[in-house]
Design a protein around this nucleic acid. Sequence first.
DNA 1: TTTATTTTCTCCAAAAATGAAACAAAATTG
DNA 2: CAATTTTGTTTCATTTTTGGAGAAAATAAA
Lengths: 233, 233
Amino acid sequence: MCAKKILVVDDEQPLVELLTANLEREGYEVISAGDGLTAIELAEHQKPDLILLDWMLPKLDGFEVCKRLRPKTTAPIIMVTAKGEEIDKILGLEIGADDYITKPFSPREVLARVKAQLRRDTYVNKETTGTDNIIKIGELEIDKSAYQIRRAGVDVALTFREFQLVLFLAENAGQVFSREALLQHVWGYEYFGDVRTVDVTVRRTREKLEPDQNNYRYILTKRGVGYYFDKSQ
Amino acid sequence: MCAKKILVVDDEQPLVELLTANLEREGYEVISAGDGLTAIELAEHQKPDLILLDWMLPKLDGFEVCKRLRPKTTAPIIMVTAKGEEIDKILGLEIGADDYITKPFSPREVLARVKAQLRRDTYVNKETTGTDNIIKIGELEIDKSAYQIRRAGVDVALTFREFQLVLFLAENAGQVFSREALLQHVWGYEYFGDVRTVDVTVRRTREKLEPDQNNYRYILTKRGVGYYFDKSQ
DNA sequence: TTTATTTTCTCCAAAAATGAAACAAAATTG
DNA sequence: CAATTTTGTTTCATTTTTGGAGAAAATAAA
């Protein structure tokens, strides 16, 4: 899993520190800005996954910052406000914040809301499986919504990573991928590991997937390059 | 479950965009119209599952659009109005809108109401069809109107959440859902809590529902992904 | 055939996911 | 408003998966 980056915008230094400490303790990467202009700049260049934005800011207030940010980023914005401020406006259409928290707040509450917003973000990706949920290649069926592969109608028990590997290769059948490329696509962009990991996962997958261990049909090796899924299957 | 289609009718382009973005982020399919006539046309041909309709519109105002739409579609209509407009008329018989939202509103609020209406929609449909109120899967009977589950004819005493969980999974049997997705669908849009809550509820449900605690039949785990209802039941 | 390179295999340790249980908070009911 | 039930959180234990290192095997080249 990758560390989500959170931009904290507030002019009160102690508050920023408190939030930073709490967020970092939960494994988030935190960047911060003390005023609106810096916030916009940071948001553009650092591309945070979520923005915690104070309402009262020097130079450019939260309202303005939010309005300018909205067209530039899809990251959820949580406004931090004092009680009594016009909450309906904050969440209103003009601004487009995703949520708000009123001061004083507990760190736990902030964390809960941050988590919930980030969750919502990832949620869509996992489920928009759409119509075409089963890929068929020869006698292989890859069911994307059941995370299940069948060969000749029989379930093949793969782990999550193994499944992802087969899915990726099968969706790009015929194309050879280097180990580095597979690490990128199957493991994720910020994965720093040994390329040998790919070999091991390929072997384990073959063990479960291939009917004939001496004559592989699905995941083939392109010596000196990498692996690919046999298109003719 | 296919993506619900929502028709957004408003003449302010930025507003439409904001709503579209938010709705799509929740997995809905969005179509839009900028005036009343287009709205009616779209509603007829695209058959949306829900209509978000602004009060002030060029060519044909929301009042008229709603009145003409009502006989043609059973989709819930949510009126978008400025504060101070005659709300009782909007919901009244003459127009027949199902709900209303006053400007300015938060995206969250809109999503909440959309969701609520769609939920009621499916509920009403399932009820008016009468017969189909009991889902049978193997020796399991899920009685949606009695909020009651029977296994082999014997009542299983589940709490509301547990019931909702089983119902949702059973209605989408075979499809694996991440904990995040389950929080969204079973707990609701504004739930701020830990994903592990799902684990605990699953465990409690299994305790009551499953006949064999060492060999689950209904709610199964897909390691690394989430939970699903066994299709073969 | 021999050598060098690449791939595969095996084992072990680390990390992650899940399950279970205990506890706390919140909601419901009488 | 007190008691009960439901729901959510946290912690700990267990299981499963994953990653890494090096030996063995296979392949290509000399």
